[in-house]
Design a binder for these strands. Structure first.
Lengths: 218, 218
DNA sequence: AGTAACAAAACGAGCGTTCGGTTTTTACGA
DNA sequence: TCGTAAAAACCGAACGCTCGTTTTGTTACT
């Protein structure tokens, strides 16, 4: 009987239940997944599930919490890219890290959309709202310095990094979670490269700082 | 008894049912909405719903079909922007049209996410896949001409218009459908303006065509 | 002995769908 | 214009089933 480093009493069982629930929720949604199904998939009895979690919704909440923990873990690749704060030079790294993050957390990402639909976004709203603030904290110092050095254009780089991050997350989510690969009519890496070029240089020809000819009617 | 221009027999009833179902599906999801609830909200009896639609899923399918019809209607603002094919000069118009489109079809847009979650994307996959092709048809001619005139940079403008369109749809969907307003820490129009600037000019300073200093390690 | 972990049956409610029946509309020969 | 019979529209109870949860226990640690 080992003592000292021993895990909380029934951590193994709850971990199995959470894993099973994640797989089921992410594939069929919350409402369509029954406690009995989770019971069968995890090997725990229904009564035991209620003993450990109290309710079905509590299981869902636990899974959401797990995702934030993974996502904000300073040791994962994505957080390291953010820490380095070298946008837009590291756009390729950002894309790679986000691709990996979406791949690794495929099931968890589905939970976000499930929450929006089946719970009106109750469980995830707070996080979304704090996102702008988090970016501000991470990047403001770095951007101020590099602006002074003339390394940035006239666009607010904070918006740039948020636009790029969100877009890449969205792109890979559609590709990997919604099951619609190559949805720009080209392969993934090509689409990402083009996107990075746009973020860095825009679609207009370089050099000419002349304003666009006024083609809008009203 | 008017004859000639008389509508199909029970169009009014089915329209009421579809409207009620759309409101309920979009707010609570497919599984969480019961036929009895649709019956109460529409004023039709449950039996009558089955008489007109045959099954619950058939109602959902009808709503998805309605959305594509609205979205591809050549008379709406968004399709007119696409027809004009003046990207990227008309980015402001594109943003306005997409904002309106998302606002007008808020409930229908939720159906897409519901389909992805509760039906594994069965009802909408075909459309997503045909999207690249549709853009190609609309824009290829216009882009070829303007490339010859030197009005476009080195970025593939077809990717540009798809990136911009998809991003704007995504942005307004989060704002208006997911209930998370101003999620970049600024108000909507400001965030859109910044995004448009990025698409046109990129985040790097203009004029300097020098390559980025190699800051990547591997 | 006491507490946490587990199991299984049972409960009440709600589900999608079907069915038997009534009402309304339609079609058409007289 | 009317009468009438077929067809469509409509209703609500009932069927068989599954749901989230509770209850009542038994087993296993400490």
């Amino acid at each position: 009987m080992p003592r000292g480093v021993q895990a909380a009493k029934s951590e193994v069982a709850t971990a199995k239940a959470l894993e099973a629930a994640l797989g089921l929720f992410s594939k069929q949604g919350y409402g369509a997944t029954s406690m009995r199904t989770i019971s069968e998939a995890s090997g725990l009895s229904v009564g035991n599930l209620y003993h450990h979690f109290g309710s079905k919704e509590a299981i869902f909440q636990r899974l959401i919490d797990e995702y934030w923990e993974h996502l904000l873990d300073p040791n994962n690749d994505l957080q390291r890219v953010f820490e380095a704060a070298e946008f837009p030079d590291d756009l390729e790294d950002l894309a790679t890290a986000i691709e990996k993050s979406v791949e690794d957390h495929r099931s968890y990402i589905m939970l976000i959309f499930i929450d929006v639909i089946e719970f009106s976004g109750t469980h995830i709203r707070a996080f979304y709202e704090s996102m702008a603030e988090r970016f501000q904290k991470t990047y403001s110092e770095s951007f101020a310095q590099r602006k002074r050095d003339g390394l940035l254009g006239e666009v607010d780089p904070l918006v740039g990094v948020m636009v790029a991050t969100r877009w890449l997350f969205y792109f890979f989510t559609v590709e990997k979670c919604f099951g619609v690969p190559m949805h720009f009519g080209m392969d993934t890496s090509q689409a990402v490269d083009e996107f990075i070029r746009i973020v860095r240089h825009g679609v207009l020809p370089r050099g000419g700082s002349a304003p666009i000819p006024e083609s809008q009617s009203d």
